[in-house]
Design a protein around this nucleic acid. Sequence first.
DNA 1: TTGAAAGCGCTAACAC
DNA 2: GTGTTAGCGCTTTCAA
Lengths: 335, 335
Amino acid sequence: MSVTIKDIAKRAGVSITTVSRALNGYPDIHPRTRERVLRIADEMNFRPNAVARSLVMKKSKTIGLIISELTCSSSSHHFIFDIIRGVHDQAVLMGYDVILSATSPYQQQEISYMELCTRRQLDGVLLMGVRTDDRYLQEVLDASVPCVLIDVPLVSKTCGHVMVDNVRGARMAVQHLVDLGHRRIGMINGHRQAYVSFDRLKGYRQALEENGLTFDPDQVFDGDFKEDAGIEGVSRLLDRFPDMTALFCASDMIAVGAIRALHQWGKRVPEDVAVVGYDDIDLVRYTHPPLTTVHQPRYQMGTKAAELLVRLLSGGEGEAVVLEPQLMVRESTIR
Amino acid sequence: MSVTIKDIAKRAGVSITTVSRALNGYPDIHPRTRERVLRIADEMNFRPNAVARSLVMKKSKTIGLIISELTCSSSSHHFIFDIIRGVHDQAVLMGYDVILSATSPYQQQEISYMELCTRRQLDGVLLMGVRTDDRYLQEVLDASVPCVLIDVPLVSKTCGHVMVDNVRGARMAVQHLVDLGHRRIGMINGHRQAYVSFDRLKGYRQALEENGLTFDPDQVFDGDFKEDAGIEGVSRLLDRFPDMTALFCASDMIAVGAIRALHQWGKRVPEDVAVVGYDDIDLVRYTHPPLTTVHQPRYQMGTKAAELLVRLLSGGEGEAVVLEPQLMVRESTIR
DNA sequence: TTGAAAGCGCTAACAC
DNA sequence: GTGTTAGCGCTTTCAA
């Protein structure tokens, strides 16, 4: 058995209330008493029982990090892991523990997020990887559990979000291509159920128009965020526009696939076709050629999300935190 | 307020004891009563409060996944994330939740694992990334909290481990090189504080000796698991052994660095020097050339670890779970 | 088959 | 300043 405040009370010759007060730093207690209690607690190697405290406080000092099924697929590993680290580090810094949850393709059972929340008394949740058509999204919003979304631009009384400025990121990427003299720039986008796809398309279009180029929907191929989309996209776009000299991809994995396909078509990168990716996952520094891409501050997304959630927990209102992307120029656009 | 068994009891006109019995499927209750209680609970959308249950049961149905600082560095992302997924999925399947913990370089505070355990009433912990000289390792073993280590071969009453057969993996790698006709095979190892380094070196040596080649310590460079070690290792080894035609690296990141360095030395891979890595992280399929490496079943390591831990929790004894590595032959050894 | 009562470790009125 | 008391939501003897 581990030591409880009762044990301390007995040893110190005071009531458990006094012990509680000393431990929690309340002011209405004699300094000498507090000191003694604290010393004894330390001597007895006392560890407060968070479970008991949660029960009475109705707060668990725990947040749920819910990773939606989709995000678990190949390409996003890198991405997610950094965010997880950010969330964890910041949460711990602020006195919260993190419970991991995921809607896995392996478990058939459809556990609702809310179920987890009430069962574990989670103070709030962090959602990442949800698609616009995710049925749980509404559920989370309805139940007024404080919640922070990553890459889903929703704001309400109890819900905020963190995202990187995707319009801006896409514009930077495309502007870079335009600056290099490209006029016929294709795009391979992620699936339509991701909010980020929408914004990246918007940024692509804006950049074109800002530079007096016409936006042509046919120059955009809608796929998903995986490698195969890059392969298919290249073949479709090159079929329609043999004169395409540059390609903007909504993810690095798309770009990797695209480069592979371009090589198969006998095109050199960047000499014949320049390619820009999105995300700046680790592996793009090792591809051939190394990929020019839009960096997202992943770790920071995590810390900011945790921060925002805790702010929400202390009564703050939902807000949007938008971080800045950064263009990383490598050899897939310029030698 | 959410609904409690008290609410159900009132509505059903029975005592809370009866409700508890019905909910937990005890036999000593009238079928009709049970049915009614269950129906009412369902109607009221009852969710048992895990916190309250934990308090009285002194079991939290929660396990801690503790990731040691070291592992957070670059190269291991890929690695860890899959393990986390495996642990999570299997844990949930068995009715446990997972709390994330990490000794981060960012937080100065030295929280002990045990502190987390007692505070959160964790039923058991899973440790990954600990080095042989980790001071907490002993702490965990002393406190008899059921514990499963990943890649640290310790077994005790309350502690087991999961690892991939590193001796075998290294032997496969080196045997592959020998089979290709290589006689002068160098090795770049990870740091000495990782158990796996020890075993991989052992496997390297065994393979050499099994093939009548002499083991020469000078042919082994001790670095760490990162890219730079590969760069430095190549220059050291090539200095000493200009006739080296093959290189076995204890991690993929080492191999990536090694290939980079080899190119700088004007060596072609694999024509002049063949390179084998270890881990099979995602990016090695995109390096130039794609890397031959030893695959570790990461997701499975996670599921097996969670399984073992739960077995330990139900009174099982510590045991060693050893998984099989697999050689992935790509173009860095054979064209 | 069911219920009353105690208690898990802690906090928080409220009295003294 | 300090102690008494009640109670968080649940499980579990023990009696009935």
